[in-house]
């Protein structure tokens, strides 16, 4: 992990961000930093406050409190200052369906002052990165979901930003497109671009990110490298049980067991248990259901992972 010594070595500094919508506190005192060249993941379930945090970082909405600095430039809502440093790939597709991929990029390029031959050169480059060169002349409404997502990303990196912010760029697309996107982001990260990446896919975070923050209920629960985060869970193991029925009731029963940190029903038939030393506890866990109509049909003991961390920190699994 690069250690930031100079203000300009910090790509993004977020301090004390707060935002409420009425009584709903969407972002609650969020602090973090991204070093130059670092890929930083913001991991959290639906409604955690990821998009709201990003909207404040990009100056789209005004924070109730707190500050955002990108390479030392203070970002404020309604002011164009510092925007050129940021490449923003929104969670919702933001492309014009009646324009071709290339014309979309031309328009977004112009917003950043890119025009003429310079623009065409950059457009060709980013089209190559997202592998859309051969479809660039087609209207974007004729693209597949994955191609639209890739165009959305291309628009964000067109003007060569120094901090690229991607808000769940792989939601709802096929594995092939997803891999293409992850490879592209990984390549950008390797090339030294600073990246803020939000997701609720654990695998993506593990694959891409140098450091991570886990966010839930508007708060950052923990920040660190994957290894640092996993070590927080210590000797806790995650045991996934497949039961014949009534997973919720099963979880209820398991919580009473000594040594069980938490037990959560993931769906009708899966219970995730966080336990101190799974090997020793396993007979007790299975024994809990003796004499009940619930049968244990499968047991899986997981390596300490970010999933376990998440369960440990928030009491819920990431994907609910």
């Amino acid at each position: 992990m690069p250690i930031a010594t100079d203000v300009l070595d910090i790509a993004l500094r977020v301090e004390g961000l707060k935002k409420s919508f009425g009584a709903n506190v969407a972002v609650d005192d969020v602090w973090f930093r991204i070093a130059k060249g670092e890929t930083f993941g913001l991991l959290g379930p639906n409604g955690a406050g990821k998009t709201t945090t990003i909207s404040m970082i990009c100056g789209l909405i005004a924070a109730d409190a707190g500050t955002v600095d990108v390479y030392g430039t203070r970002i404020a809502a309604g002011s164009p200052r510092g925007r050129r440093l940021i490449g923003y790939v929104p969670q919702e597709l933001a492309i014009y369906p009646d324009l071709s991929g290339r014309d979309n990029l031309r328009f977004f390029g112009r917003l950043y002052g890119l025009r003429g031959a310079e623009a065409e050169r950059r457009i060709d480059e980013v089209l190559d990165v997202v592998a859309l060169r051969d479809r660039a002349g087609d209207r974007s409404e004729e693209y597949s979901g994955g191609m639209k997502r890739r165009l959305n990303i291309a628009a964000g990196m067109l003007h060569e930003p120094r901090l690229l912010i991607l808000d769940e760029p792989t939601v709802g697309i096929d594995p092939q497109s997803r891999n293409a996107i992850l490879d592209a982001v990984a390549a950008l990260g390797d090339a030294g671009l600073s990246v803020l990446y939000t997701t609720h896919y654990m695998e993506e975070a593990e694959r891409l990110c140098d450091r991570l923050a886990i966010m839930d209920g508007g708060k950052i629960k923990a920040t660190g490298t994957r290894r640092e985060l996993v070590s927080m869970v210590g000797k806790h193991d995650v045991v996934n049980l497949t039961v014949s029925r009534a997973a919720r009731a099963a979880a209820e029963g398991l919580r009473a067991l000594p040594g069980v940190r938490s037990a959560t029903a993931q769906d009708d038939r899966t219970v995730s248990v966080l336990a101190d030393g799974a090997a020793a506890l396993l007979p007790d866990i299975i024994g809990t259901f003796a004499g009940t109509p619930i049968h244990v049909q499968g047991v899986e003991v997981l390596e300490p992972s970010l999933d376990a961390v998440f369960l440990h920190l928030t009491g819920t699994a990431l994907r609910d």
Binding site: L60, P80, R81, R83, R84, P90, L111
Partner: peptide, 8 residues
Amino acid sequence: ARVLAAPV
């Protein structure tokens, strides 16, 4: 939103 994220 995307346009407003640009220096505009």
